[in-house]
Simulated assay, not measured.
Amino acid sequence: MMIRKGGPADVQAVLGMFDSAVAWLTERGRTGQWGSEPFSTDPARIESVSRQAGEGGMRIAEVGGEPAGCIVVGAAMPYVPSPVEPELYVQSLVIDKRFAGQGVGAALLGWAREEAAGRGVGVLRVDCYAGDDGNLVKYYERMGFSRTLAFKVGEWPGQILEMRISRDAS
């Protein structure tokens, strides 16, 4: 697996990753996280992925030369409380369902942890969907994050999690 910097040329591949995740969730009746419509047909989601691709915090994991997952890091999202100390925030993480179970998410989160340490920040934060069976929150806990604050955006239930970073781990 290789992790490389992402950019505008990756927008279609990342939209495809989201589309595969949405289809997988929809097949299981779990539309609360991202809805049931493909990201690639939603102008607001296309704009969001395009903006993130141009901001410098996007990384793409490739498996066998194919884009398999994407992480975007940067500043905290506007709907969560501001950080109380310097941090790196996982704004987005998505894995193409064709590559599920191959450690793509863990590798991308490992890259983010190393990036935070390299920047000398003490915390890596992420928020995620906390509805349904809570499996997404449990996933982040297995990856070394701890729950900090539950929140809602409208009716969407979210959970903020954080990972303490050793500043000498870089």
Rank of each mutant, 00 (worst) to 15 (best):
M1P: 14
R4H: 11
G6F: 01
G16H: 03
F18C: 12
F18H: 14
V22W: 01
E27M: 13
G32A: 05
W34P: 11
S36F: 07
T41H: 08
T41V: 14
P43S: 03
P43L: 04
I46C: 08
V49S: 10
R51G: 13
Q52E: 13
G57F: 05
A68K: 00
I71H: 02
V73M: 09
A75T: 08
A76E: 13
M77F: 08
M77R: 15
Y79L: 15
V80D: 01
S82V: 15
E85R: 13
P86H: 00
L88M: 02
V90E: 03
V90P: 07
Q91V: 08
Q91F: 03
L93R: 00
V94A: 00
A106S: 12
L108Y: 04
W111G: 04
A112L: 01
R113G: 05
E114N: 13
E115Q: 09
A116L: 03
R119L: 10
V121K: 02
L124A: 06
L124M: 07
C128E: 00
A130Q: 12
G131N: 08
D132I: 07
D132T: 06
D133W: 03
V137R: 07
Y139H: 13
Y139R: 11
E141S: 13
E141P: 14
F145K: 11
S146W: 11
L149N: 13
L161Q: 06
A169N: 10
